[in-house]
Simulated scan of single mutants.
Amino acid sequence: MTMTDVPSAVRAHWLAVTSVAVGTFTVVTSEMLPVGLLTSIAADLGVSAGTAGLAMTAPGLVAAVAAPALAFTTRRMDRRLLLIGLMALLGVANLMAAAAPDNAVMLAARVLTGVSIGGFWAFAAALGSRLVPERSVGRATSIILGGVSVASVLGVPAATFVSSFAGWRSAFVAAGVLALGLLAVLAATLPPLRPPAEESGPATREKRSSWLSGPLILVLVLTALTISGHFAAYTYVRPFLEQVSGAGPALVGTALLLYGAAGVAGNFASGARAARNPRSTFIVLVVLMAVAMPALLLTGVPPLAALVVWGLGYGGVGVALQLWLMREGGGELGTALFVSSFNVSIALGALAGGRITDAASVPAVMGAGAALTVVSVVVAGIWGRNRTTGS
């Protein structure tokens, strides 16, 4: 390579990183779509809000299985081809959901979405070290994982905004078009990506032992507690705002946009601190969530301030957990286990929230979500002190 080739090579590396980040944003946004559209989906498909919440449960459960299954069964496949194929599947699944005539077709589409989510996220999270020089790995990884975090806090308000003008199906169409458009970008920017050498061989007992180290188990447990608590409550935040706070469509959209903006701020504000001390950063963020959820129940007006605090907390949680995981190691398969835990927690949280909503009330889910986040803080504070190198 000549000196004149270096700038274009560097640009190509960062274009690849950016395209993968857009990919992680797209898959996680697709997973979150039903949250802001739940009321409209339920009414159009003729089901209860709790049943409509299965559109969140299904992809989460499938992604939880797909992440480790694909990481194990595709150990010898080019990661570039896998990422392109999974993005194509996501595009088809979103368009299928947009056209769903009933809840059965919607759930089938969401199953396909789950396969794409689990595989793409698991493979993408570890690509930073393969796309840029060693000195830039931290920055590249932050950008790629930032796609997950930004999607988690912006996907819902963006979908709600689009649906307020053209209906809930338009949000799925937009996500499907974005996924299919991204196919060409991934194909153009990603180099061939052979599977990592450490993952391509047989799964030895020593490898399995390193994947299931004490600190890694701690990260998985904290992921389960925090994410399930979040989604038990957040999946039903729109019905809460409408039924308890009396907010109309415009105010609901504004509230979710404020939540999203706060989440992005929390994501970037906590990133540098989490890189140095993920445990303490995680605890602070989850405390914010645990305070915000019950605060929603104590106000008689649309609780914008509580949603902002909630967004600040949750916006940084994903980055803190991911940086904690990276510090403890585990490679692609360790990342796949984290993705599995994250997504099964989304599914179980949404499912539990639906059952609580149908059996008790919408406000009750806020208390349930707060309780789980409090348990997460206690576990991180007690078990985390002795079980992690990131303390």
Rank of each mutant, 00 (worst) to 15 (best):
136 S>K: 09
75 R>N: 10
26 T>N: 12
107 L>S: 02
329 G>L: 07
96 M>S: 14
202 P>K: 04
363 P>C: 07
78 D>P: 08
232 A>H: 01
250 A>D: 14
320 A>D: 03
320 A>L: 04
241 L>N: 09
41 I>C: 05
360 A>Y: 14
363 P>I: 03
316 G>Q: 11
193 L>I: 11
79 R>H: 08
182 L>R: 04
289 M>I: 15
4 T>S: 10
191 P>C: 09
240 F>D: 03
45 L>R: 04
309 V>C: 07
247 A>G: 09
353 G>A: 05
182 L>H: 15
51 T>N: 03
304 L>T: 05
151 A>L: 09
276 R>Y: 04
383 W>Y: 11
189 T>E: 02
308 V>M: 10
102 D>P: 00
189 T>I: 07
1 M>F: 08
379 V>S: 06
57 T>R: 06
302 P>E: 06
340 S>W: 06
324 W>P: 00
105 V>K: 01
345 S>V: 10
164 S>P: 06
390 G>C: 11
257 L>G: 14
87 M>D: 04
159 A>G: 15
136 S>I: 04
299 T>G: 03
375 V>C: 12
3 M>R: 12
158 A>W: 05
108 A>C: 09
375 V>A: 15
87 M>C: 01
80 R>D: 03
74 T>I: 06
6 V>H: 02
113 T>H: 02
386 N>I: 13
114 G>H: 12
372 L>K: 08
294 P>A: 11
164 S>G: 15
291 V>Y: 10
282 F>K: 06
311 G>I: 08
11 R>Y: 00
247 A>H: 11
186 L>Y: 13
280 S>L: 09
383 W>C: 01
163 S>E: 11
123 F>E: 07
39 T>Q: 06
256 L>Q: 03
352 A>V: 15
227 I>S: 00
340 S>T: 00
74 T>F: 15
211 W>L: 15
137 V>L: 04
62 V>T: 13
391 S>G: 15
81 L>D: 04
277 N>I: 12
161 F>R: 09
176 G>Y: 02
176 G>C: 00
142 S>M: 12
266 G>D: 08
210 S>D: 04
60 G>E: 07
40 S>T: 13
296 L>C: 13
381 G>P: 05
133 P>Y: 08
154 L>E: 06
230 H>Y: 00
218 L>F: 02
339 V>M: 00
371 A>R: 08
131 L>P: 06
330 G>E: 04
55 A>D: 05
92 V>G: 05
373 T>K: 03
288 L>H: 07
326 M>I: 11
294 P>F: 13
110 R>D: 03
276 R>A: 15
134 E>V: 15
298 L>M: 14
132 V>Q: 03
19 S>E: 02
358 D>R: 01
137 V>I: 14
355 R>S: 09
7 P>A: 09
132 V>F: 05
202 P>G: 05
9 A>W: 05
34 P>D: 08
221 V>Q: 04
218 L>Q: 01
355 R>V: 15
293 M>D: 00
338 F>Q: 09
65 V>A: 14
355 R>C: 07
372 L>V: 07
89 L>I: 09
130 R>W: 08
383 W>K: 04
135 R>C: 02
353 G>T: 04
19 S>M: 13
284 V>M: 14
15 L>T: 10
233 A>P: 02
17 V>N: 05
68 P>H: 06
78 D>A: 07
211 W>H: 11
